[in-house]
Simulated assay, not measured.
Amino acid sequence: MPTPPPTGPLVTQDTLTAELRALGVEPGEILLVHSSLSSLGWVCGGAVAVVRALLDTVGPDGTLVVPTQSGDLSDPAQWSNPPVPEQWWERIRASMPAYDPLVTPSLGVGVIPETVRTWPGALRSGHPQTSFAALGARAAEVVEGHSPDCRLGERSPLARLEKLGARVLLLGAGYDTCTSFHLAEYRIPAPVVTVGRPGADGGWEVVTEVSIDSDRFDELGHDFERDRAVVRGKAGAADVRLFPVADAVAYAQRWLPLHRSREDEF
C-alpha cells in the first residue's frame, strides 16, 4: 500500500519562530527546552530547523539550554529496558567508555537536544549521566561547575538557571520531562542511592547521590499549572508551556513532601 501523505501541519523555521515569539519567548532570555520533534507536525528541516528557530527567538544575547543525559553510563545490574545477562555485568563495567562531553551522545531526550549538543559552539556540562548542553551568550556560565556527584542539585546547571532567571519551555513535552522539579528533590528530605559508572580516570566508580524520581511529575505539573501563572499555547501541533524555573522549583519543594508518601520516599 502507498504511504499516506503527512497530515501536518507544515512547520518551518519561520512559522515556529513567529509562534514562539507570540507565546512570549523574549530576545536575550535563557531558555531551558524540553522537546518532542514528532509532536510539532511535519517540520521542514527537522531538528535543525527547530534549533534555528529557538536561537532566532532568543537572539544573539540569549541562551538555549537542553538536557543531554546519558543514563546508559550506569551499572548494568540496574538496567531493565532492556536488561542484560548477569554474566555480562563485570565485562561491561570493565570496558564501558568514560564520559566525554564532546563525544558521548545523549540518550532518551530526543533528537532536538542531540542536535544542540553537536551544534557549532555548543558547551556541555561535566556530569557523566545528567549533563546539559547550552548555546549562546551565557552558555559557559550555565554549564560550568557541574559537580560529578550532584546530578540535578545545587551544583548543577539547574541551580544556575534558577539563579539567572531562566524559563522552561515545554515544546510538545510533558511535565514528566521537567528537570526543574528534580532540583526541589535536593531541598527536601530524600533518600540516597549508590550509583555506579565508568570513572573519568579509568576503572569503575561508585558515588552516593540523592535519589530522584519523576513518576508523579505529571500530577505535580497539573497542580502547578492550576495554581501558578503558566503560559499555554501551541507551536505547530504541539502543546507548549512556558514558566520560570524558579516558580517550578519553589512549587515542587512544597508539593512533594505533601504528596509523596513515606513509602514513596524511603
Rank of each mutant, 00 (worst) to 15 (best):
L54P: 01
A133N: 07
L171K: 06
C150S: 13
L170I: 09
D176Y: 15
G145A: 13
T118D: 05
Q78N: 13
P128C: 09
P105T: 07
G136E: 05
V111A: 14
R52C: 08
E90M: 12
T68R: 10
V84T: 07
P157T: 02
A137L: 07
Y99M: 11
E162R: 12
V58M: 04
E141A: 13
W89E: 09
L161M: 15
S180C: 14
S180I: 09
L123R: 09
R160Y: 08
Y99Q: 12
S125Q: 07
P157G: 01
R91S: 14
R160T: 15
G108H: 05
A173L: 03
A53S: 13
R151M: 15
Y175I: 00
E141R: 13
S180Y: 09
L107G: 08
V116Y: 05
A134S: 14
P120D: 09
T177K: 09
Q129E: 11
T57L: 01
F181C: 14
E86V: 11
P85L: 13
W79M: 00
G136P: 00
D61C: 01
V84Y: 09
P76Y: 03
N81G: 06
P67M: 04
P105H: 14
D61M: 04
W119K: 04
S80V: 08
S180K: 04
W88M: 15
R138P: 10
L54A: 00
E154M: 12
P105K: 10
Q129A: 15
E154T: 06
W88S: 12
T130Q: 14
T177E: 06
G165F: 10
D176E: 15
Q69I: 03
F132W: 05
L64D: 03
P101E: 07
E141S: 10
G71Y: 00
S95L: 14
S70E: 02
L102K: 14
T177I: 04
R52A: 10
T177S: 14
D56I: 11
V84S: 14
L54Q: 03
S106K: 01
P83D: 01
L135N: 00
P157V: 00
A94E: 15
R138C: 04
D149M: 11
G174P: 04
E144R: 12
G108I: 03
P85D: 11
M96V: 02
S80L: 05
Y99S: 07
S131C: 08
L73Y: 05
W89A: 07
D72Q: 11
A122Y: 00
I112V: 09
P120E: 15
Y99L: 11
E162T: 01
T115W: 04
